[in-house]
Design a protein around this nucleic acid. Structure first.
Lengths: 344, 344
DNA sequence: TTGTACGCGTTATCAG
DNA sequence: CTGATAACGCGTACAA
């Protein structure tokens, strides 16, 4: 194995060509207009020979442009985040940027550390953030330093361009579907809401639905995974309705409910109807098929990247909220009298 | 909003402190030993005041160290890759590196482009690659430029440290389990094998198992998703065995088989036994529970990062193959006479 | 204990 | 058409 550090520089190329580095630089930046064909060919040859590549550090030092975009996502476990990142990545690469990635694991402290390191380093030209929701202040401050786009999760104030799905209206739509399907008492199962704007919006839709269409107390269950069984049982034991239903705030919650269902030996939709966010691949395979909201996170990522790069390139204007539409897939879990033709 | 480009430099700090930038530089690098407490405090104060951060570009230009590690993964869709990346990310961050990420989508051309751009840019200090398997030559060449670690998928020659799971022995173990469970004709369902070392190893284990324990022809099915139904039917129609079984090469294939099963109205394990790689979250929820091999990809990523950083920091020695052990979870899909207590 | 002066690899300005 | 020369922001011998 050779040494790893013997990279040819523009000076060497210049010397070998018998011209000055200015000319090489011109060549590199495509300014052939002021260059004899002969020198150009010579340069091309030498560059090829040496396998010379200009140093991006030096370039960045001059231009103050790194071509780097920082991305901070909260939770990589969910397929959701993967697609978000993929959307961002594809678009950035297409437009000539690289992405540097961080996973905050829903931990505001980690998020803070990462953000500070990204910005402190002065390496990234912009930031796309799927925020935990607990660092609004820091974000606002960082917004002074470089453009920021929020992906999926908003801040309390619309300080930056925000690309998100239409949580509120889609949740409403799903609940109305359950209503029409004949489910009376509908509970809202969620992960801890905290500062999470998405969960907030979905809860709000639930509340509005409830107050418009139902009486009595709302049924909101915040579950940590260990307590899912308890929540589920508690909900099912305390209503007097032949057709209870559950709306789950996201795929993780749906999974938790399904696991409980399995442990408690319950049946869907006989024991309760189920409908919720995130149409993951297996949703159609479990039991009678789970009614789910498909939410195009790839597009959210792509659009976020688009906006960011536009801002980096100088776009101005007020922060905008960009809504990406979702789709409801109705399956057996919300069909009361249908035959569960799909599963066992 | 302020301008984004007014970053203070070391010179300004120096001027404000009334010292030379050498002193500031010393301060930044923790050489307090030769510095009066007074100047040190003054510097600390001014730096804080200006919110000054040294430029990483300039630093990299001098030191030729970017603190950046390139990561190329083949397929982000699978939870597998997410955890791999997470493992890499966590470890790199802990050790002070940032990661730049690319998704090749199993496309050798994309992979090639990304690798070239990463290396060409001379920005990364090392590379972790989950290779498509079609760019061995390029990789070997790049190995001259910077350290490389292969994650999960090996090259045909062990040119670089490779961190992978123990595909061969684990596949054997799973097949022996099926054997003992009473499955006679066992088929091997896989995505296109191509140059993928992981799929190759698993297939080899299947072949060895078959030749040691069975007679007649092996049953290997390479399925693209649209053909899954056909493969499944073809397999089930052409054997005379009351207890056929299927081994799936990975989670994607398992999912494809499950979808077909559902479409064709088949039952597991009554119609066939199923066992395969990748113990994704839903594996225990579908039907009677799917027997699956859990494969700690997070650890693969973490270990790969560990090795890479060791190499970057100068570790020498022959390329090593590091095997990470997996675990087989037996569930209803391979229990012939058990009651499917878990599902419906 | 602190400062001077130069180099890292590139680009931009201006002069030929 | 081409070439000096001066930045960019930082680190570091060497000098004081």
């Amino acid at each position: 194995m050779r040494q790893w550090n013997q990279k040819p520089t523009i000076d060497q190329v210049a010397r070998l060509c018998g011209v000055s580095k200015t000319t090489i630089s011109r060549y590199l930046n495509g300014k052939f207009e002021f260059m004899s064909d002969e020198t150009r060919d010579r340069i091309a040859h030498v560059i090829d020979e040496l396998d010379y590549r200009p140093s991006n550090f030096a370039r960045s030092l001059k231009s103050k442009k790194s071509g780097l975009i920082g991305v901070v996502v909260a939770d990589i476990q969910s397929p959701f985040s993967s697609m978000l990142v993929k959307g961002i990545s594809d678009l950035c690469n297409k437009l000539g940027y690289h992405i540097i990635i961080f996973y905050s694991d829903e931990d505001p402290d980690k998020e803070r550390d990462y953000l500070e390191s990204l910005i402190g380093d002065r390496m990234v030209e912009g930031l796309i953030i799927n925020t935990t929701g607990n660092n609004d202040d820091l974000l606002t401050e960082l917004g002074e330093t470089c453009p920021i786009i929020l992906a999926e999760r908003a801040m309390r104030v619309l300080s930056f361009d925000t690309v998100a799905n239409d949580s509120y209206s889609m949740t409403k739509e799903a609940l109305l579907h359950m209503d029409e399907a004949g489910f009376q008492t509908i509970a809202f199962f969620t992960q801890p809401i905290g500062c999470n704007s998405v969960r907030r919006a979905r809860l709000e839709a639930y509340r509005d639905f409830w107050h418009a269409r139902r009486t009595g107390e709302e049924r909101v269950f915040e579950l940590e995974s260990p307590s899912a069984d308890r929540c589920l049982r508690s909900f099912l034991d305390h209503h007097n309705d032949p057709n209870p239903g559950i709306f789950t705030v996201n795929g993780v919650t749906t999974l938790a409910v399904l696991k409980s269902t399995s442990r408690l030996g319950l049946k869907i939709p006989q024991d309760f109807g189920l409908c919720g966010y995130d149409d993951w691949e297996w949703a159609s395979l479990i039991g009678p098929g789970i009614t789910a909201i498909e939410h195009p996170t790839y597009q959210v990522g792509a659009e976020a990247a688009n906006r960011l790069i536009a801002r980096i390139r100088g776009a101005t204007g007020k922060p905008r909220l960009i809504q990406i539409p979702s789709v409801l897939h109705v399956r057996g879990s919300t069909i009361l009298n249908g035959s569960s033709h799909l599963g066992r």
